[in-house]
C-alpha cells in the first residue's frame, strides 16, 4: 500500500506553493527534494547542527524538526529568498563575502538565515548577541570569527542605508 499523501499549501520565498506530501516528509526534505531549493542543507536531522535553518513566518527555525504538512498556511523563507531579486547577494550575503565568513559553504545559508533574523530584530547587535544568535548553528570551517565580523559589517552597512 502506498503512503497516504497530504495536501499542503504555503508560501515559499513569496510564491504560493501547493503540493501533496507524505506526512513523514520533513520540511527540509520537502524544500530540497520536492521544490529543489537546495540551498537549505541537512546536517544532523536531529535538531542540533542548525544547517537546515529557515525562516518560518519570519522567525528562524530548524526545518528538520517539523514536517512539511505542518507548514500549511505558513510563509517560508530560505536562503534563496534572501538574495536580491536578480539573484545577486544581498547586504548580509555580501558582508559574508567581504569577510570570507565561510569556507565549504555548507553551514553558510543557515548562518545567514540566523544572522538575518537577528538583524531584523536587533539592527545593532553586540558581539555577544551575535554569538548567541548563531550559537545554535555549528560551523566546522571558520571558528566563527569572520562570521561575527560579517554580521557586524552588515549591521554597519545597513545602518548606512545599504539594501
Amino acid at each position: 500500500m502506498s503512503e497516504r499523501l497530504y495536501k499542503v499549501r504555503l508560501k515559499v520565498n513569496g510564491k504560493d506553493v501547493e503540493a501533496e506530501v507524505p506526512s513523514r516528509q520533513t520540511l527540509v526534505d520537502f524544500l530540497r527534494d520536492t521544490l529543489r531549493l537546495t540551498g537549505t542543507h541537512v546536517g544532523c536531522e536531529h535538531g542540533i547542527c542548525g544547517a537546515c535553518s529557515i525562516l518560518l513566518d519570519n522567525e528562524p527555525v530548524r526545518s528538520c524538526l517539523m514536517y512539511a504538512v505542518q507548514a500549511e498556511g505558513c510563509s517560508v523563507t530560505t536562503i534563496e529568498g534572501l538574495s536580491n531579486p536578480d539573484g545577486t547577494p544581498g547586504v548580509l550575503q555580501d558582508a559574508f563575502c567581504e569577510m570570507h565568513a565561510l569556507q565549504c559553504g555548507y553551514c553558510t545559508p543557515a548562518m545567514i538565515v540566523a544572522s538575518h533574523a537577528l538583524l531584523e530584530s536587533n539592527p545593532a547587535p553586540s558581539e555577544a548577541e551575535i554569538r548567541d544568535a548563531i550559537g545554535g548553528n555549528l560551523c566546522r570551517c571558520t571558528g566563527y570569527k569572520q562570521i561575527v565580523q560579517a554580521v557586524q559589517l552588515a549591521a554597519e552597512n545597513i545602518a548606512k542605508g545599504a539594501k
Partner: peptide, 21 residues
C-alpha cells in the same frame, strides 16, 4: 581580495552531492 567561491555559497547555490538528482 574576495574569494571566487563565496558568492555562490552565500546565495545557496553551492552544488553538493545531496543536491544532485
Amino acid at each position: 581580495r574576495r574569494t571566487k567561491e563565496d558568492p555562490r555559497f552565500v546565495t545557496g547555490r553551492g552544488r553538493y552531492v545531496a543536491d544532485i538528482a
